[in-house]
């Protein structure tokens, strides 16, 4: 944490604190407000566990998107990849293949879908936005065709393990979430690969001239995003114990929103894993709290949008004051 705070090197102390910790304080405020309004329901252990289980899949997907957004790229296709992977795994299991092997094959497919994004964008020269917009549509179409547009039920019982069971009272999905966050955190902060991602995000030309294989690094980042989108898709399918061709759609915007929210926290304007986790939690707590208050989901979307704008505004105002 000391390391993170010292990153914000300009401006006066209070502004620096607002800038690095403002979003986090906003999150605490959300917790306090919901707890104050519904002290009986919201802060209960059961509900908090519920929130974490609800956000686990989003967190898994968002970790991968973080890696892509560190370089300044963008991945719109994660929702479609998650859906597609769920459908493929379900079809394989329905066709009588083992649960484990079905999951592995579907994951390989999803990761390859990510690498195809990387190929188009890093080597083909498409902008990340256009490239993943196109593949989002295409992968989504494949999921619809493969499933005939319907939900696939009747998956094997042992497939419930990833999304619905617990080991030593900790839900397996939460364990996967923590592992995903941990792995990508280590990747971004402790490896040369992570350094190179951040360097490219700061100045691609200078990175290239410093001997970084910028194309390869960007290509791989889309593979990472594809991998975690697939993992999220599998856990989601297991949790629902059914596969729907559009089950992953909300990931697209929510994952990006979480990373953007995270960019306002801890570090200035840079995607980072702790920030992404915070972003995911904010989205999760908002959804859960507003549900408890009985506010309808359309209003919820409006409020989520407002929260994102507020967080970004707050951090940019703090930046200007420096």
């Amino acid at each position: 944490m000391k390391e993170l705070v010292s990153q914000a090197t300009t401006g006066h102390l209070t502004i620096r604190i607002v800038r690095t910790w403002g979003t986090f304080m906003g999150f605490l405020l959300l917790l306090i407000v919901f707890s104050a309004i519904r002290p009986d329901v919201f802060p209960s252990g059961r509900n908090l566990k519920n929130i974490i289980e609800q956000v686990a899949t989003l967190a898994i997907v968002a970790t991968g998107v973080t890696a892509v957004m560190v370089t300044g790229d963008f991945d719109l296709s994660v929702g479609s990849i998650a859906s597609l992977v769920g459908i493929v795994a379900a079809l394989l299991m329905k066709a009588g293949h083992g649960t484990f092997i079905s999951v592995i094959i579907a994951m390989i497919l999803g990761t390859s879908a990510g690498l195809i994004n990387g190929l188009l964008i890093a080597y083909g020269g498409l902008s990340a936005f256009v490239g993943t917009l196109a593949t989002m549509t295409a992968y989504g179409g494949v999921a619809l065709i493969a499933s005939n547009g319907t939900t696939i039920f009747g998956l094997p019982e042992n497939f419930r393990f990833l999304g619905q069971e617990s080991v030593a009272f900790i839900p397996v999905s939460v364990v996967i979430m923590i592992l995903s966050l941990g792995v990508v955190y280590a990747l971004l902060e402790q490896t040369t690969y992570g350094r190179r991602l951040y360097a490219i995000g700061g100045n691609e030309e200078a990175s290239y001239l410093s001997g970084i294989r910028t194309k390869q690094v960007r290509f791989l980042s889309f593979g990472i995003s594809g991998f975690f989108a697939s993992l999220g898709g599998i856990v989601l399918t297991s949790r629902l114990h059914s596969a729907h061709p559009q089950a992953g759609s909300p990931f697209m915007l929510n994952a990006a929103a979480a990373v953007f929210l995270g960019m306002t926290a801890f570090r200035e304007g840079e995607a980072n894993i702790l920030g992404t986790l915070l972003g995911v939690l904010i989205i999760g707590v908002m959804g859960n709290g507003l549900n408890i208050l009985g506010i309808n989901s359309y209003v919820q979307s409006i409020l989520t949008g407002i929260i994102i704008i507020l967080a970004v505004l707050l951090s940019s105002v703090a930046k200007k004051r420096a």
Partner: peptide, 12 residues
């Protein structure tokens, strides 16, 4: 333009 990543630390 070509030599530095301004948003990263000196030692990086």
């Amino acid at each position: 333009k070509q030599g530095l990543v301004l948003s990263r630390s000196i030692y990086e």
